[in-house]
């Protein structure tokens, strides 16, 4: 598949706050509905956005420094939803973290670390790059 360039995307840029999370989610869901994405995939899209955007909201801009998130969405071909999340916060590759050990018994399980694991498993493809001081996360769903 051709890698879409930024002109192919519809963009939404908002400050990186919890209040904006549902607005970002709704923006992508509305785009996805244009290609008749199933309710099942829409829930996965919503989940992946919650996990990835919250990571940025909570950790990308420390010390109360207000930053923003650019969210791009495009439909490059039949049955494909392409999401690009861009922030200019501290460099962080979410895919560099090892998957949590999901086979551990309850008392040994850590409360956390599951978000990115869910993202990897729910999305069809996830890629990270650091470019021009920005974190760029591309997420692809086959609808």
């Amino acid at each position: 598949m051709r890698q879409p360039d930024s002109g192919d995307f519809s963009w939404l840029q908002l400050s990186a706050t919890r209040e904006n999370l549902p607005i970002f989610q709704e923006f992508v869901i509305n785009e996805a509905k244009r290609i008749k994405t199933s309710a099942e995939i829409l829930q996965k899209v919503e989940l992946v956005l919650e996990e990835t955007l919250l990571n940025i909201i909570c950790y990308a801009y420390p010390h109360n420094h207000e930053g923003s998130i650019q969210l791009g969405c495009c439909l490059p071909g039949p049955g494909e939803l392409y999401i690009r999340i861009v922030d200019s916060g501290i460099a962080f590759d979410p895919l560099s973290r090892p998957d949590p050990d999901v086979g551990q018994p309850m008392q040994d399980r850590e409360v956390g670390g599951l978000g990115i694991h869910l993202v990897r498993r729910m999305a069809d493809r996830v890629e990270y790059q650091r470019k021009d001081e920005m974190n760029i996360l591309d997420i692809v769903f086959r609808t």
Binding site: Q43, E46, L47, E50, E51, L54, V111, G112, L114, G115, L118
Partner: peptide
């Protein structure tokens, strides 16, 4: 109908 990692925690 929906659970995320925050719910799992």
């Amino acid at each position: 109908e929906y659970v995320s990692s925050a719910g799992l925690r």
